[in-house]
Design a protein around this nucleic acid. Structure first.
Ligand code: FES
Ligand code: FES
Lengths: 144, 144
DNA sequence: GTATAGTTGACAAAAATTGTATGGTATGTT
DNA sequence: AACATACCATACAATTTTTGTCAACTATAC
């Protein structure tokens, strides 16, 4: 039940982006440095985030990424789901895939289904803005 | 965010065991056949389950495994945690491990911590007995 | 004593994740 | 136009984790 580093990286990077953007595009190079994430790997993640309509890109010098919407309208669950395709606990829910073999009438299926729902609901209950304002509080607290 | 097959196998096997035991030990060979799980793999899982005090073993011919307690006192969360060591979403919670590098003040840590809590709470809210009686209902329904 | 069935540890195969490399395209600046 | 920046895309390599297998051993019922 581990989250991939993809998901961890993506959320951290999105917080970083929000904190440092202020309307201007932020380059991945900056984010990669600040958050200590391999640049090329981050590029892959942001490709997905762009296709997922979570960020917009600006090419050329001075370019970078911008939030596609206000941070209060971006859910952590979206970010995670976008970079970590299946947010379901078991593969039989993947569509196309069959049920698990034999099975004790597969009573367990329901459990995993509900578990997935709980996970998604929780992650969708937190917005990027929640994390950003929390981060700002911490920074303010550390300064004084 | 995938559950290992270890966890899926273990829960299914435990349901199977409960359904077929009725006080008598059930051999892994039976379970492996009914649930289509590699026998040797299942042995490893039941070793962990035994050490986790979830089942008891009876050696020799006619032997097998028994529930260590009544099924109503066995939580699905226990079974999963026993075979799938870390039920935490990120490794920085593993004790001994450091925090994630750099980090946007690691606001995200709290999110993963809460997520882990939710997952554990949910899985601990379901007992093996819940699954077994659900399975019995299905079997009865299928028969008529 | 023999067959059954759990116990254990080492190891191999396979899959998934994580990270790297390379070559592109768009665009602002000089 | 040339050049530098920074996104875009794909392929591939390294690593780690998961999954499965093998072999040897111990206890016990018959
Ligand atoms: S069919 Fe989904 S877990 Fe068995
Ligand atoms: S320290 Fe735990 S996620 Fe960053």
């Amino acid at each position: 039940m581990r989250l991939s580093t993809r998901a961890q990286y993506a959320v951290r990077a999105m917080v970083d982006l929000s904190l440092h953007s202020e309307g201007r595009p932020v380059s991945l190079r900056e984010i990669a440095q600040r958050e200590d994430i391999p640049l090329n790997y981050l590029e892959q993640l942001f490709n997905r985030l762009r296709r997922g309509n979570i960020v917009e890109s600006v090419r050329g010098p001075g370019g970078g990424y911008l939030l596609a919407r206000e941070s209060a309208a971006i859910l952590v669950g979206e970010i995670v789901a976008t970079v970590e395709e299946p947010l379901t606990p078991v593969s039989c829910m993947d569509k196309g895939k069959g049920r698990c073999t034999r099975t004790a009438a597969c009573t367990t299926h329901t459990v995993w289904e509900m578990l997935g729902e709980r996970i998604r609901n929780f992650l969708d209950s937190i917005t990027l803005e929640d994390l950003v304002s929390e981060a700002r509080r911490r920074i303010a607290g550390a300064e004084q």
